[in-house]
């Protein structure tokens, strides 16, 4: 049986974190969830540095990445990940309130694997999070370990 893969959520807003975790819980997706509160923290985690130094549990199966965050924004995190061969294979799903065309265009051109606009309707939001979780953390085969440092 497959071991449950880790999902990483990069989100600055506590309400959104709560709602996302609630949505995942609702579908009994018991995967381990790591939360980073901004882009800088996300990069520290991915590179196992700062307060994550010495971490050796490998990369997450998928990263749910907000765009508008303090310090380092989601697009910058995406740019750094996709331009680093060690992280570029990691699936990244943009999960954001923005439907603006420039954000969409920038995300895809930087190499985002998916782009999901958070619906206002909670039920729709729950459905969206569930589908992302099920697809990327259960259905989808992640890249092999040796493709990621």
């Amino acid at each position: 049986m497959k071991s449950l893969r880790r999902i990483m959520l990069v989100e600055d807003n506590l309400n959104d974190i709560d709602l996302t975790l609630a949505a995942l819980e609702e579908h009994h997706l018991a995967n381990e969830i790591v939360v980073a509160r901004d882009g800088a923290e996300a990069l520290d985690y991915l590179y196992s540095r700062g307060k994550f130094a010495g971490r050796d549990d490998g990369p997450p199966a998928v990263i749910l990445l907000d765009i508008k965050m303090p310090k380092v924004g989601g697009l910058e995190v995406l740019r750094q990940m996709k331009s680093d061969p060690a992280l570029s294979a990691l699936p990244v799903v943009m999960l954001t309130s923005s439907r603006e065309e420039p954000d969409l265009a920038a995300s895809y051109s930087l190499g985002a694997n998916a782009y999901v606009v958070k619906p206002v309707d909670f039920q729709q939001f729950v459905d969206a999070v569930r589908q992302i979780g099920v697809f990327w953390a259960v259905v989808n085969e992640p890249p092999p370990r040796n493709a990621i440092k």
Partner: peptide, 9 residues
């Protein structure tokens, strides 16, 4: 688009 929609959500 971004900030006003978040609290509604």
């Amino acid at each position: 688009s971004h900030d006003l929609r978040a609290p509604l959500r």
